[in-house]
Amino acid sequence: MNIFRLLGDLAHLASIFILVHKMHTTRSCRGISFKTQALYVVVFVTRYIDLFYSWISLYNFVMKIFFISSSCYILYLMKYRFRPTHDPTLDTFKVEYLAGPCFALALIFNYHFDFTEIMWTFSIYLEAVAIFPQLFMMQRTGEAETITTHYLAALGIYRALYIPNWIYRYYTEGTVDPIAIVAGIVQTGLYLDFFYVYFTKVLQGQKFELPA
């Protein structure tokens, strides 16, 4: 554990609390992609299969349980409690275009060809692109509520902070995880456009609006 990793994980936790807070206070899931949230459930469930056979630390265990349960809770909120506030006609990105190639890539580029390892690899690739339906939706509507942009910023910062964590681990432990690193860099790269608007507009008190 190092400071980058810890701050990254805290940003990830913060993003989830911001999202749940947004839904409860506005009693709405408007502007949130159900597809992206569903992909996160798939990401966590396929990545954390090792909960059943591997003990890393109490921190690791508690965080995994939290990510699985909170992502399921978010789907429940969207699917049942605030269902009328979700507009499926805006959430039209085809998730099979993401899941299919990620699964194929996991079959080809992995560390070991066995079930749990391929599921782990699949989850890493899928997480990298899971934000696409959300970004696509914002592109279509051309705007986002400020609280939604705080959620996305925290989510992007989480993976961005993993990059200095990997550099730090390379120098202190000599460990390199090329699959996580390449996917993590791609994942962070997808946020660059968003970050630009977030830091130059939203944090200056303006509304998040994309040029028409």
């Binding site: 090792d50 890393i56 630390s57 090329p178």
Partner: peptide, 10 residues
């Protein structure tokens, strides 16, 4: 890195 069940990150 790359060892099986050596995934200690979230």
């Amino acid at each position: 890195g790359g060892k099986q069940s050596g995934h200690d990150e979230l």
